[in-house]
């Protein structure tokens, strides 16, 4: 893990995220969100969590981004109508960022030297998931099923 890669990925991710938050065209914003998430996935690779990075790409880029893009199409191209931009949001976001950064820089315990990376293999993740995390896993399964059915019910044509 070296800092050159870190700096490049950080700039890339934050720039793409900023573009996603501010671009006027919705479709461009959604595509920039994809770029930001790819940057995030490369952070995960950098940190030795390959599996989570791949899952992130798989779920966010493969499913969520396509869903967002699909919704943009289904709701028509009315992104031009309301260009309104709430400037108080900028102030609040900057304030939050300032506070967080101040807190992070103040905390002494965070300047840790990275320990020896022991890569977590997929097999280990599977074993932990099936041993200690069975109930959360089942709950997530139920949640996803409920979300699927709920989303279907919401978008089904209403009886007029």
């Amino acid at each position: 893990m070296n800092s050159v890669a870190f700096v490049i990925i950080a700039i890339f991710t934050l720039a793409a995220a900023l573009a996603a938050a501010t671009l006027p065209n919705l479709m461009h914003a959604a595509l920039c969100l994809v770029l930001a998430l790819l940057g995030l996935a490369s952070f995960f690779f950098l940190l030795g969590a390959e599996f989570v990075g791949l899952v992130l790409v798989f779920i966010y880029v493969g499913a969520v981004a396509v869903l967002i893009v699909f919704t943009i199409l289904l709701t028509g191209r009315d992104s031009r109508e309301h260009r309104g931009f709430n400037w108080s949001g900028v102030v609040i976001a900057l304030a939050v960022f300032g506070c967080l950064t101040w807190a992070i820089l103040k905390a002494q315990s965070l300047t840790i030297v990275p320990p020896h990376i022991r890569a977590l293999t997929v097999r280990q993740i599977g074993q932990v998931l099936m041993a200690g995390y069975v109930w959360p896993l089942q709950c997530v399964g139920v949640l996803l099923t409920a979300a699927l059915i709920g989303a279907l019910v919401l978008v089904l044509e209403e009886k007029r």
């Binding site: 595509l31 390959e50 791949l54 899952v55 790409v57 880029v61 890569a119 293999t121």
Partner: peptide
């Protein structure tokens, strides 16, 4: 480590 998942994760970008 996770080549098959890589295949599908990258392949899912095709749709986009």
């Amino acid at each position: 480590n996770g080549g098959i998942l890589f295949f599908f994760a990258v392949g899912s970008v095709t749709e986009l």
